[in-house]
Simulated assay, not measured.
Amino acid sequence: MADQRVLITGSAGIVGTLMRPRLAKAGRVLRLLDLAEQTPAADGEAVEIVTGSVTDPDAMAKACEGVDALIHLGGHSRENSWEATLDVNINGTQVVLDAAQKAGIQRVILASSNHSVGFRRVDETPEGGHPADSSPRPDTYYGVSKAAIEALGSLYHDRFGMDVIAIRIGSCFESPLVLGPRGLVTWLSPDDGARLFEACLSAPSPGYKLIWGVSDNTRRLYSLTEAESLGYKSLDNAEVYAEQLKDKPLPSGGEWLGGPFCTAPLGHFNPI
């Protein structure tokens, strides 16, 4: 049986670096695309290192050749100027989706963010958490770009029949400690992240789907129903770190899902 080839854009970023060893498996080749320098393949590691930009149509067309599935993590991962956000996050995603469609890739996973709905209020959280398909309420230019990415995914599904899953990721780090108390709500453990991506890669005919990307945290504000319908099962909980965070100050913007992104200046690098 031929190897499954999965293209990961933005593979040198935080999430891409965490997923590289966790998504490795027998019968799978990871094609890793980023502009940043990447660690060369280790002995026995089934990876292909590609240097390129998501905004470059020719580079993306070449990167998509022979690919079975695409995980699109590439782009600015924090608030930036409108011009940079538009160019890389929005235009770049259109370039990626166009290249995938022309290459015949039928399974695309898009990294969206909790910041696409950051101005939804915490005190309006329904039982079970905010639904994954809550309409956009972005908190920043970055959040706007993630809402646009979701819309582009919907368009490419409806126009071309591609299976597209947009994941509204909370915060994926080795531990929630880097996030402070907010991490007890938003954390997606790296192991759970890999479980979620595996579910997205293997779920039969998901169509277009919006899901939350978080662990089953005691304090989570997000519904896991949609992700679980694809086969995701969280095994981690940020609450195990609660004692270490009990004396840390709460960030501003705690009344909204977007937290401090809701109070930081537009167009400037924001806190996590």
Rank of each mutant, 00 (worst) to 15 (best):
Q4P: 02
R5T: 15
V6R: 09
T9A: 06
G10K: 11
S11E: 07
G16M: 03
L23A: 10
L23S: 07
A24Q: 15
A24K: 09
G27N: 06
L32H: 06
L35S: 01
E37W: 03
Q38A: 02
V47G: 08
S53T: 02
P57I: 04
P57N: 01
A69K: 08
S77H: 12
R78D: 13
E83H: 10
A84R: 13
D87I: 00
V88E: 01
D98M: 08
A100V: 12
V108W: 09
A111E: 07
N114I: 15
V122R: 00
P126Q: 02
E127M: 00
G128F: 03
A132V: 09
D133R: 04
D133L: 02
D133E: 13
V144R: 01
K146T: 05
S154R: 15
F160E: 04
G161T: 13
A166M: 13
I169N: 07
G170R: 04
C172W: 01
L179E: 13
G180R: 03
R182M: 10
L184F: 08
V185L: 00
S189A: 14
D191H: 11
L196G: 06
C200T: 14
C200P: 10
A203K: 07
T218E: 15
R220A: 05
E226L: 14
A227Y: 06
K233P: 08
D236E: 15
E239F: 03
V240F: 02
Q244E: 13
K248V: 14
S252G: 14
G253R: 08
G254P: 01
W256I: 00
P265T: 07
F269W: 12
P271H: 05
